[in-house]
Design a protein around this nucleic acid. Sequence first.
DNA 1: CTTTGTGAATATTTTCACAGCT
DNA 2: AGCTGTGAAAATATTCACAAAG
Lengths: 221, 221
Amino acid sequence: MNDIPEGVIERLSTYLNCLIKFQQSNIETISSERLGLSSGVNPAEVRRDFTYFGTFGKKGVGYDVETLIQHIQRILGSDEPHKIALVGAGNLGSAIASYEGLLQHGFHIAAIFDSDPQKIGKTIRHLEVFSIADLPHITRNAGIEIGIIAVPPFAAQEVADMLIDGGVSVILNYTPALINVPAGVQLHNTDPVQQLLHTLYYLSANDKKLAGRKRSSIASD
Amino acid sequence: MNDIPEGVIERLSTYLNCLIKFQQSNIETISSERLGLSSGVNPAEVRRDFTYFGTFGKKGVGYDVETLIQHIQRILGSDEPHKIALVGAGNLGSAIASYEGLLQHGFHIAAIFDSDPQKIGKTIRHLEVFSIADLPHITRNAGIEIGIIAVPPFAAQEVADMLIDGGVSVILNYTPALINVPAGVQLHNTDPVQQLLHTLYYLSANDKKLAGRKRSSIASD
DNA sequence: CTTTGTGAATATTTTCACAGCT
DNA sequence: AGCTGTGAAAATATTCACAAAG
């Protein structure tokens, strides 16, 4: 019957981000037009996106920022905490561990893993670094759902397999390696190259006619 | 007349990634079916994507991997080198500087910037770290087109403004900050939270009926 | 016999435009 | 007067299905 388009879910997290900024600026009410403007989405689309899940606005007024945030968080599932296993305690792993946004959205790094004996036992941001050998065991025991791979590319598939073995069902791959996962596990690749490549196309040289892109102002990805 | 869908461009960079892996496995010819399988795209769509730019295949045979790679690189513009300004020499910046994939695809970090006097003058991967004050000047002189922001979020907008001042037209924002850019500048946000948020929705609890996602095997983003 | 390239059909997404609520 | 929620229209994207090529 009603299948919710993937684009809707993607935009919902964009709206959430914008709404939180509005909230921080003490804006209490917002119109679809203003929200659309700051997220780069047509106002009618903003309104339709919400109607997939209910009717959250007040005609003639707009949406209550606080309430809308709560609705979106409940829809996405970020109203309750989620545990993350971070694999790789190098520069990238350390950067991710220090990333403030995670905690704000209910994501909680429950364990950090590395294969380097020099790093095992040390702490990063009050979290002990465990041996990667213990990954499946610890991950399963702690009920961790999300894995972030921040290791050298050659080890990426092996790490993914261990995460899956540990019961993880969402994997963020920060490696350029192409990873295979079984159905039921969600894989997201965050490859800077991939992102740069497709922006290149829109760089003037290729843009024979400089066709108007919809990627104009604030948000993307 | 013929406007090329944005999705096509996005998939093209996915194909390129897969094709390079195939090439590394010494596979010389590939069918749309096999390429589609490894990139999670319907074979007919793979074929149609290519026809926007020409006819690259041989009927009854498939596509020559080497040739197809060259075609896609030319289409995207990654057949010629592109210069990057990396702003932020902390953990994240260092990780990006060491990222091997960039060079492989013709991306070349031309300069690194930081505001910390402790870091200015030091080198990362044979590249001197310059003061952020010199950013617009150096960027413009070197003809740098791409900027990567890997600084603390509060400084993100300021850095973006300086990059734009320096003539950059593509910005990769590794910060959770929402950045404003003028039309003509392409902004890509790479926020791990954003990516995690929308995968959450598909985690079983919310998936009332466990509807079949198309995100199944290898590729995504 | 295999696999491309593509018209036509289908499906999905986005946008318009306006009735109806506050 | 202002803005939502939504049918209907328009625009896009995807997939089917098959003729043509090697």
